[in-house]
Amino acid sequence: MPNDPDPIPVGTAGTVAGIYPQRGWMQIDVNWDNGRSLMLSIPDDCVERLPRGE
């Protein structure tokens, strides 16, 4: 999250709460395990999808 003044720390896990396709990109609403909620902007933000239960 290169432009966020208070980014989610690298390695933090979360649960996708919503996906909102845009033209050429997506917003993904995430409830992070550290108690925060913050939307991702894909492709700008770098994330890794894990299988459920990990």
Results as ranks from 00 to 15, higher is better:
Thr15Lys: 13
Pro5Phe: 03
Asp29Lys: 08
Pro7Met: 07
Ile42Ser: 08
Tyr20Val: 13
Asp29Ile: 10
Gly24Trp: 02
Asp45Ala: 08
Met26Thr: 14
Gln27Asp: 08
Ala17Tyr: 09
Ser41Ile: 15
Cys46Ala: 13
Ile8Glu: 02
Gly14Val: 11
Asp45Trp: 00
Gly11Glu: 12
Met1Pro: 10
Gln22Lys: 09
Leu50Tyr: 14
Cys46Phe: 04
Ala17Pro: 01
Gly11Gln: 08
Met26Cys: 09
Met1Asn: 11
Arg36Leu: 01
Ile8Trp: 04
Ile8Phe: 06
Gln27Tyr: 09
Ala17Ser: 15
Ile28Val: 15
Asp45Glu: 06
Trp32Val: 04
Ser37Met: 03
Trp32Gln: 03
Val30Ile: 15
Pro51Ala: 11
Glu54Trp: 05
Glu48Lys: 08
Asn31Ile: 07
Ile28Phe: 10
Leu50Ile: 00
Met39His: 08
Asp44Arg: 14
Gly14Tyr: 04
Leu40Phe: 07
Leu50Thr: 07
Ile19Gln: 14
Gly11Cys: 08
Arg36Pro: 00
Arg52Gly: 10
Asn34Gln: 01
Met1Val: 10
Pro21Gln: 05
Val30His: 01
Ile42Arg: 06
Leu40Lys: 06
Val47Met: 09
Ala13His: 14
Ile19Met: 13
Pro51Ile: 01
Arg49Met: 07
Asp29His: 10
Asn31Phe: 00
Gly11Ser: 09
Pro7Arg: 07
Gly53Asn: 05
Arg49Pro: 05
Arg52Gln: 14
Gly24Thr: 06
Pro2Ile: 01
Met26Trp: 09
Glu48Asp: 12
Asp4Ile: 02
Met26Gly: 01
Ser37Trp: 00
